[in-house]
Nucleic acid binder design. Structure first.
Lengths: 260, 260
DNA sequence: CCTGTCAACTGGTATTACCAGTTATATAAG
DNA sequence: CTTATATAACTGGTAATACCAGTTGACAGG
């Protein structure tokens, strides 16, 4: 029993903590004020009491309503801004919007891209999501849902003719985004939105996830047109195959790009 | 041309914005101080200059180093806390940790679960991810990588015998998490971590994404054992099939649960 | 009717102060 | 000399206040 006397304080604390849980006591994590404010906001949004577009009262008003100081309110608003739930205009005010993952991604992106192989894994995840999305299409596909695809194609064709690389890349992204939108799966849309945000930040970071060579862009366009036509013909099996090989090619091109 | 006069302000603003871009001017978005601080932190982490476990200087020191006020530093730390990059101990200090999606999810979860069909879509995404993960296994599977799976199984068996529902659910999650870990795909791991976090919050929100009936739990355990055995035998095709039907059953059980 | 000015907002930042925890050191008791 | 306690020096959390800079809208002058 003498050993107990010499236990370092770390172990002492650890054992005491253990004893507490054994007696049914759970550690108390003091909640911060901004978390209470956050909670109320999120609750109002999730119940629909606050709609996108609504203006949020000024920080001073909120501080008074919640009976807290302005810094506490600001911390809550900061979090809402990062998760992309509000838009803050200095001098203007804060407005609710549909949740967007962009702001969050813009913070996290550098951390992710510092990983080895991350861009390849990202492409593979995109492949997984998009192919799944096209599998979900047949049940509820309508003619109007295909329109955005057609728009994205014509835009990409225009960009190609005018050699507008940036517009072409945007139209490329838009095509795939529209494809996901048609799937009507909220969560798949959000995941792809996340992937797309990462792509955009990768480009800004100097990585070539977007193709710039003319012939490559032409091939992408041709692929898109093939997929679109297959969807028009209600030939979903073909569309799926074409999409798969399309994404496969993107992966190969990217691998070549990274190699050189 | 008279029509132009009657354009709603929305369109006027839109056109003005368009004109600006046409003339080559881009809107100026003033950056806030906390963003600069964030940037420096993220950069230090992504380059490895700051490692998980490192202690971050106190807010007052940081404020002095950056030559800004403490509130600005606090806003940056608040964001780092939400994206799960640091752990803040009141009275203690702030410590870097491996990035975790938990804190972010805990804020966003209520927003997502207010969507119709979200839990079903979540299960389907999980299915997609896990099956993909098992496809990635064969190339680099080692015997030691399977150990966590065995541990999770014995733990679940113990929980089942003692009728410890909570421990059983945790062991269930742990089994699937280990499976993902073995895939060595960083991004798939992160996506599953995200899904698991959502599951946990769903449970707290009173939703029954975790099964509580004894016979169901027994079936889950049996499935896990089957998958584990298949992996031991290097029979990956069988493991994949078993996992697919396992997840299918989970979906069915959940659907029954929601119905009643 | 157009236009420029001014006043009343807004959020962004800084400063200061105090409270409540933690940690480490020093001091007193054994 | 060891141990335990108390004190002092941290830490982050919150508050109150002030000022700056940008936006907005109303009002007065052209």
């Amino acid at each position: 029993m003498l050993l107990v006397v010499f236990l370092p304080s770390f172990w002492y604390n650890f054992l005491m903590k253990e004893r507490d849980t054994n007696t049914g006591f759970k550690p108390i994590a003091p909640r911060k004020i901004y978390q209470y404010i956050l909670e109320q906001f999120v609750h109002l949004v999730s119940t629909g009491a606050l709609q996108p577009g609504d203006k949020i009262p000024s920080e001073r008003e909120l501080a008074e309503s919640f009976a807290v100081s302005r810094p506490s309110v600001r911390e809550a608003l900061r979090v809402l801004e990062i998760i992309g739930l509000i838009d803050i205009q200095p001098g203007g005010g804060a407005y609710l919007k549909e949740m967007e993952l962009g702001p969050f991604i813009s913070v996290v992106a550098p951390l992710l891209f510092s990983r080895e192989q991350f861009d390849i894994e990202l492409l593979e995840l995109r492949e997984l999501i998009e192919i799944r999305a096209i599998e979900l299409l047949p049940a509820k596909m309508s003619q109007e849902a295909l329109e955005p695809l057609a728009l994205a194609i014509t835009e990409m064709r225009r960009a190609l003719q005018e050699d507008d690389t940036e517009a072409g890349a945007l139209a490329d992204i838009e095509f795939h985004r529209s494809l996901l939108l048609a799937s009507e799966s909220f969560i798949l849309q959000k995941v792809l939105e996340l992937i797309v945000s990462l792509f955009e930040h990768a480009v800004r970071g100097g990585r070539s996830l977007v193709l710039e060579k003319h012939e490559d862009a032409a091939q992408l366009l041709a692929d898109h047109e093939g997929i679109y036509q297959a969807l028009l013909d209600n030939n979903y099996a073909l569309a799926k195959t074409l999409l798969a090989s399309h994404l496969q090619m993107v992966k190969v091109l990217h691998a070549q790009d990274s190699a050189k």
